[in-house]
């Protein structure tokens, strides 16, 4: 994403950015709340299984920062290098939609929770539907890019 709008010069930025007394009250309250959460997770260990709970909280942040973010950056660089500027916008939007929809529906598509004795769980052919949707989005992106390119040539 381009972020070319430089922030305006800000006088006495360092002192203004410091939290005031009210902010400190909120900060202390927030950390206290998180401390209460940790105590609760440990107190209800038979149901929270603290090791598993913490693994998922910390693991989610690590996967986000160490896997998802680098992959998104790499894909972004790939787009910049390999895709023309006319195609880039629509294709980036289509890929974004497809990836997010795919991630959110992945447990449904992969059918990890399917049970042979209960056909009312995961009854929809979500994998087929996701494939059709993804294909349609990508095709639509190229069609939009093609139309834009034609319009651009006419203007020239």
């Amino acid at each position: 994403m381009s972020d070319r709008a430089d922030p305006p010069a800000m006088p006495s930025a360092a002192s203004d950015a410091r939290p005031g007394p009210l902010a400190w009250v909120v900060i202390v309250a927030g950390w206290s709340l998180m401390g209460w959460v940790l105590a609760g997770v440990l107190r209800e260990a038979d149901r929270t299984h603290p090791g598993s709970w913490v693994t998922w909280v910390v693991g989610a942040a690590l996967v986000h920062d160490l896997v998802v973010l680098p992959v998104v950056l790499l894909v972004g660089f790939g787009f910049s290098a390999a895709v023309t500027s006319t195609t880039r916008g629509p294709l980036r939007a289509a890929v974004t939609v497809v990836v997010i929809v795919g991630l959110v529906s992945w447990p449904t598509v992969a059918r990890f929770g399917a049970r042979s004795d209960n056909p009312s769980i995961l009854p929809i052919p979500a994998g087929r539907n996701l494939a059709i949707l993804s294909g349609a989005m990508i095709v639509a992106a190229f069609v939009i890019a093609w139309i834009r390119a034609r319009q651009g040539r006419r203007v020239q």
Binding site: G30, W31, L33, M34, W53, V57, L122
Partner: peptide, 24 residues
Amino acid sequence: AHWYPWRFFFPVGHWWAAWMVVGA
């Protein structure tokens, strides 16, 4: 999607995580 690849009881784990996000 009825997929539970963890050991904690989901409603309880979710409840505590929600309060943690409020604090954060």
